[in-house]
């Protein structure tokens, strides 16, 4: 029992929560934006992998870290465009197209990586983002090391969640996105072009996913390996449902999942030898399934999610 309290009281736990949550926040926001317009983007897993690779590669070749993030966003956007062409213009199955994008993007990422980077015993590294100190807050007792020793992208992700929440609920474009996800025919009847809205939301969402992936290589670690996204994309898809398609809840959901994950890591060391560590690895997933089951029943799914829109057809 005391061990548990010790874990909760350690600043390191809370710092890890924020760090683990960052790619989840970005990925979930991206998936959420896309789904609000009515397009499920299962390409997320591959897009995050590609973002992780291309962002890292840019920095490895001399770009600065922020340019690396930007290039990861552009890389994500390209796959978002591909997914849009398949699902919005051609009206194909969003599931199949999304899985196709994931398979293609992850393999393509590895292919490019192998072409560009020679095989060596130890993977090449870059110099990642450093923690920044906002107004000296990091020197606060406990709170400082717990919450204010993050790198810049983490803070950007949190700010983005707030911005996206505002965008969706308070601006005309947000209303147009929501209307398109609920009833594209109604949007069209009000003079909005649902195709353009969907393209925009999917591409912007995919850019966010790309940045989420790049956080792994440019901040959390300093090198790229092909399996590093490790199902984070799928977690993001589940978090969107958990969040009832609301950005502020997505932020909370990502933090909650990250907490489970950080907590189980520390629990492993306390209870090592007593319980096989694989059990702990399962904990975050089990808890997220439980949370999903509890939350998702009340969720209001965008009514036109996964329905292709064709003009003049009902």
């Amino acid at each position: 029992m005391n061990a548990l309290i010790d874990i909760l009281a350690s600043a390191g736990l809370w710092a890890a929560v924020l760090r683990i949550a960052t790619p989840l926040i970005l990925g979930t926001l991206g998936a959420l934006l896309s789904e609000r317009s009515g397009v499920l983007n299962l390409g997320i897993e591959g897009i995050m992998t590609f973002g992780a690779m291309i962002g890292w590669l840019a920095v490895y070749n001399g770009a600065d870290l922020w340019t690396g993030l930007l290039i990861a966003a552009l890389g994500g956007a390209v796959f978002g465009f591909l997914h849009s062409v398949l699902t919005v213009t051609l009206g194909l199955s969003q599931h199949v197209s999304g899985l196709g994008v994931t398979l293609f993007a992850s393999s393509f990422a590895y292919y490019v990586f192998r072409l560009m980077v020679p095989v060596t015993g130890t993977p090449p590294t870059i110099e990642p983002f450093k923690p920044i100190d906002i107004l000296g807050l990091s020197s606060l007792p406990f709170l400082g090391p717990a919450f204010f020793t993050q790198t810049a992208p983490t803070y950007v992700a949190i700010v983005l969640a707030v911005v996206l929440a505002y965008l969706i609920s308070r601006t005309p474009i947000g209303l147009a996105i929501r209307m398109t996800g609920e009833n594209p025919h109604a949007a069209e009847a009000q003079g909005i072009n649902p195709m353009a809205i969907r393209y925009g939301a999917v591409i912007a969402g995919s850019a966010l996913m790309g940045v989420g992936g790049a956080f792994l290589t440019l901040s959390a670690f300093n090198s790229f390996f092909p399996t590093m996204v490790q199902g984070r994309g799928w977690i993001c898809i589940a978090l969107v449902v958990f969040a009832s398609w609301r950005p502020e809840r997505a932020l909370f959901g990502a933090l909650l999942f990250a907490f489970f994950d950080a907590f189980q890591l520390r629990l492993q060391t306390v209870l090592s030898g007593v319980v096989p560590y694989q059990i702990f690895l399962m904990i975050p997933y089990l808890l997220s399934i439980a949370a999903l089951a509890a939350m998702a029943r009340r969720a209001r799914v965008p009514q036109a999610l996964m329905q292709p829109y064709r003009r003049g057809e009902r």
Partner: peptide, 19 residues
């Protein structure tokens, strides 16, 4: 041509302002 999950005001206002 309405969206059941949005409010009456949101349904009415969609597309009436510059995006």
């Amino acid at each position: 041509s309405l969206a059941p999950n949005l409010t009456v005001l949101e349904n009415v206002m969609t597309g009436t302002e510059s995006l």
